[in-house]
Each structure stands twice: as C-alpha cells, then as structure tokens.
Write a protein that binds this DNA or RNA. Structure first.
Lengths: 336, 336
DNA sequence: TTCGTAACTGCAAGCGCTCCCAGACCAGCT
DNA sequence: AGCTGGTCTGGGAGCGCTTGCAGTTACGAA
C-alpha cells in the first residue's frame, strides 16, 4: 500500500509510475478534462500504490491561492477567547469548512505581534479569506480589512461603521424581546446593565432596551454601564440599587454580568424574581443552573459560525452575499 | 510608505531596489551572516519602502518546513469542542506560539473527512508539528501519530498506551485529593460517578478515587459509570441512589455530571452537603454559582495548552522533552 | 609585493505543483 | 486526398523563496 520511505511522494513519481507526463497526472489529480480514460485510471492506480498526497504548499504557491482561511479575534486580551462563545463559533465554522479543502487558522490578535500578523494577513494574500470577530469600529485594522484584497467577513457588526460583509445576531431584537417580556409581566421600573458600549453587541442591546421602553412609554433612565464581565455586573448592580432603589426589574446585557448582578440583588435582601426580575443575554451553559435559573436571550452561536464561514466561501468564489442577521429568542426560566 | 499596487512585493523587487542580489536580500531577511553592513542597511530600507512581507508559502516550499502547527481534536462529535475547556487550552497554546513565527491551525477531526485530513497531516510533513487531544488509546491514528515523521505531542494521556510525548493534568492525584477531602470531613460511604472509562481522564480519576478509599480502608464498591455529560450524571446518580441508598458522599468525575447529580440528590429530598456531600472535577466557570457552590478539583487548563505548545516547540527544534504532569488542586466550596 | 584566509556576493538549481501552449492524433467532412 | 475541429499530450515556464557553491574582494601577514 503506502510506502515507508521518509521522503514525500511527488507528482513526478506518480507520473512516472503511471507512465504519463506530470501534466497529465496533475490533470487527473484535479480532475480536469483532457485525459483519456486509460491514463486517468493508470494515474489513479499509481496514486493509490504510492500513497500520494498532494503537497498543499506547492500547490498554494503555484496557484497563488492559499489553502486556509483564518479566524481572527481582535481584542486587547486573549482571555476573551476563553469565553465558551468562541468555542461554539469555531464548531460552526469548522462544520462548514469540513466540506471544503480549506483549513482553519486561528489568530488571537491580542498582542502587538498578533496585530502585526493580522495586518500582514490582510495586506498579503496569505490566506484565502479572513473572519474577523470582536473588532472595534475605531480599530484601524477594521478599515484595512474593509479595503483588503482578501475576502473578509465580520462576525458581529462593530459599532461605528458597518462592514460590507458581516453576520451578526439580532442583538437589538433580542434585547427588545427581553425587555418586552419584562413589561408584559407587569414590571414598570425597569433598569439595564449594559455591556461595553464600544462593542457592537453592547450598543445594540442597549438600543433594543430603549426601544421597548419607549414603545411602552416607560422611563428608560435606569442605566448602569459595565463591561460584560461578572465583576462588572456586580459593580453595576450596586450602582443601580444605589441610585434607583425603586427598580423592579433589570435587563442585563450578558449572562456573566447577570450572575454578578443576581448575587448583589440577593445580598441586598431582595428576592428574585419576586422583588426584582432579571433577564440575561447569551444563554451560557450555566444559566439554567444558577439560582433561580436565569431567564435569558439565546443566540444561535454555532449558526453564527456556520454562516460566517458560508459567507466567506461565497466571497471567495466571487459571489456578493448580503449581510446576515440571525434571530435570537427568549428563554424563559425562573429569574423573571 | 507601503505601495498600493495589487501585486505582492517580491524579494526580487526588494533586491533590485536595494541594488543587491536576491540572495543577499534573502540573507538579510533571515538575518544570516555574510552580508556587509552597507548592503544590509540598503535592503532593510528597501523592505520598509516597499512594505515587503515575505511570502510564507514560498518560504515553506523552499525550506521544506511548514509554518504552522496544528491542534487536532479527535473525537466522534464536534460538540466536545464546544466545551470551554478547549477554548482555554487554545488561549494557552496561542500565548506560547505568539512568540514564534508559527501559526496555529485547528482541526476538528470529527467527521471521516476530518480524520482523513489528520491522517494526511501525520503522513506528510505539511505541518511543523501536531498537538493531539481527546485521542483514544485504541484509535489507529494514535499509533500512526506515535511513529509519524512530524513531531506530535498528546494533550492528555490516552488510556491503553502511553505516548512518548504528552502533557496531562494530574487527574489521579486530583481525584485522590477530592476523595481524601471527603474522608477527612467524616464521610464513610463514599460513591463515585466516573467519566468515560475509555478516556485517560476517566480512568485516572477513577483510579485516584479507589486509591484514596483503599488507603483509608473504606469500601469502594459504590460506583456508577457515565460519560462526562450532565445527562449522564443525572442517570448515574439515580442508579447510585437506587443501589446504594446509604451513601453520604459522591465524588463526581466532572462538574457537568456533578450538576446533573446534584439535581437528582436534591429532588430525592436529601440535602447537600448535609445528607450527601458532592465534589466535582474541572472547576468550570459556573461551578461557583450553582446551589450550593460546587466543591471541585481545578486543573491549570491554560498551562496545559502553554506547556503542550512549549513541548512541541522543543520537539521541533530537536530536543527530547519528557512527559509533563501538571498539578491539580482542590477548590473547597459549599457542596462538601 | 605576494599570499592566504576569511568574509562577501550572486548565479543557478531547486522545492512540488499548475497551466499555457504548441504539436500530435483522430475522426468526420468536403 | 486535403481540411477542419475536436480531444489528448507533454514540454517547459513559472509561483517566490532558500541555499550550495564557485568566484570575488578585503586585508593583514610574510
């Protein structure tokens, strides 16, 4: 079957063994036309006999197109990637890519070295395409990405500018859903803890919150800003309790923050959801196990990955896709 | 500064502009010796002027060595990657790789296509090195990996055979720690819910449990096997309660399962930790927020990734590292 | 001045593959 | 028999870079 020699088997050897020219062999490998049945068979046999595997590097050099796409997370801290969110996105991307010949490269563009790498990637067609996540709108790399030669799709719409190609979850709609749910269950003094307002998701969720309140004619001034982290949620909730002691519900822009907030509310001697209802965002794995189980907004994370990859594939093959907004849905549990 | 032409800047252009030969330019780029100061400076200037970035593909082809290492997750389901565990590992790996020129490729070898890809990777030095996780000992790919030409390090020691190079967490020690803690707090009828026994971590944790009990002269027959999943934990706990109604503590081989088990125990009307103490394993993000907060064994996941990458780097540069076992530690919380 | 040696220099040969192109071959026509 | 329009075929020129090697230069020692 496969031979044990250390050296890699080359196309030339296949060609020789099959008694054809290298070109013919190449055509067979890429199943291009203009090869007789007989030769095709001979080449195929030689391939099997020798255990030939095309050298991706050489191919990439010759065709001038890379065999990999990259998922780049642009952020100040590598820690953000530790968020299970990305793991799920990766699963989605990987599922789509699995049907192609493309490999997935991961770039945590967190250090300045990482950023330099990303920049080079964008400038020099080393990758067949790039998926960009956690990109801030005011990041110069965002601009660069937008006018880059390589196909780029954004995951999540950064605040400040709308990329040509992106897929995002319906953050605004989800937030609105959550807030409307709070309103529908009779709450009237509804507060919110926002995420980072310099991120797309943060802004959009806040906007959704405001919209719902506006429609219902309720006061939307109970606001505390945080950073999506649990500690941030804790601090923000303290602030809220302090400034708006009368609140009877709070829409928290992430489950992590909701966890922190919940703690504070309970410690303040108020019951959840009796005294104050809480709704989170993301539906993280632990959401159903905290006490009380957290009502939250779920987004289709794997689909997000899948669609990003799909859009990138379309771009690579020359199509012109349109931005995609994936639906979010309310998951009702005990905290509201 | 950088020019806007679509075409990539090549070494030839740099050389021409600097008025040197291509070889000289190449030597400068790779800062090799035998280049006069003057020419070196000229080349450097040209590089800056032109915004030259070496073409990694061409370089890889010429040097016959790939510019990327791959992290391959070999498993029947892509879902396992959704476990935040991997995200953390990736952060660790990425941190180490950040100091090198190597890129990180991700391969979820889940479908048969994925497995084929992994196999080719192992056969044909397309990657500078491979990190393998979730590999089962009886997987033929494990064998192949072990005798592959490319450097391979295992993450976690698969059951059934010990790879030459691996880094693992001290699962057995951690389990022992947990069980001893249970014993020390006066429990005597201690049960366990194991993970998949065909995985290294599953077996090792079970072994640690047995050891601790043996040392204390306690009965180690209260055992239910599960699969690391929450549902598995639920079922196993039911089985345990059914067959060993007298149990007063249970060491659960993963937090996910512990969550399920906890639910069952509470539903059965027994208090935690009053009637039965529970200790988990992994210290997942949610562990501190469930009710009661879960006592568990924490492992240094990012370090795991960091050390895997470090070991691979050593291997690539020709060293011969020795397997590494990272310490685990008990995190005491409310459930025990 | 003449050597010897070590530091430079650049030519050219690849790395493995793709793909253009000119030529061969083979009907099927006129 | 001479054409025309195919379909094959393999030679060869790259893709951008590294590197062995033969040739050049510089420079202190003889």
């Amino acid at each position: 079957m496969t031979d044990l020699s250390r050296r890699q088997v080359t196309l030339d050897e296949v060609a020789e063994r099959a008694g054809v020219s290298r070109s013919a062999a190449s055509r067979v490998i890429n199943n291009a036309p203009h090869v007789s049945k007989a030769k095709r068979a001979a080449v195929l046999r030689a391939v099997a006999d020798l255990g030939y595997v095309p050298n991706a590097t050489a191919r990439a050099l010759a065709t001038q197109q890379a065999g990999a796409v990259v998922l780049a997370i642009s952020s100040d801290s590598a820690q953000v990637f530790a968020d299970p969110f990305f793991a799920e996105v990766v699963v989605g991307i990987s599922a789509t890519l699995d049907e192609t010949e493309l490999e997935l490269m991961l770039l945590l563009a967190t250090s300045s070295r990482g950023r330099t790498r990303l920049e080079q990637l964008l400038r020099t067609r080393q990758a067949a395409g790039v998926m960009l996540m956690s990109m801030h709108g005011d990041d110069p790399l965002a601009r660069l990405a937008e006018q880059s030669d390589v196909p780029v799709v954004f995951g999540g719409c950064p605040i400040g500018f709308e990329p040509r190609y992106y897929v995002d979850a319906d953050n605004r709609g989800g937030a609105r859903l959550a807030t409307e749910h709070l309103i529908a269950s009779g709450r009237t003094r509804i507060a919110t803890i926002t995420g980072r307002m310099d991120e797309g998701a943060g802004g959009a969720r806040y906007k959704g919150f405001q919209e719902a309140l506006a429609v219902a004619g309720l006061d939307a001034s109970r606001v505390a800003h945080a950073d999506f982290s649990e500690d941030g949620g804790t601090a923000a909730m303290r602030e809220l309790l302090d400034k708006h002691a009368d609140l009877d519900a709070v829409f928290v822009a992430s489950d992590q923050m909701a966890v922190g907030a919940l703690q504070v509310v309970k410690e303040a001697g108020r019951s959840v959801p009796g005294d104050v209802a809480i709704v989170g965002f993301n539906d993280i794995a632990g959401a159903r196990h905290i006490d009380p189980p957290l009502t939250t907004v779920a987004q289709p994370i794997q689909s997000l990955g899948r669609e990003m990859a799909r859009m990138l594939l379309a771009l690579i093959s020359g199509d012109t896709p349109t931005p995609l907004i994936l639906p979010t849905r309310l998951v009702r549990r005990g905290s509201s």
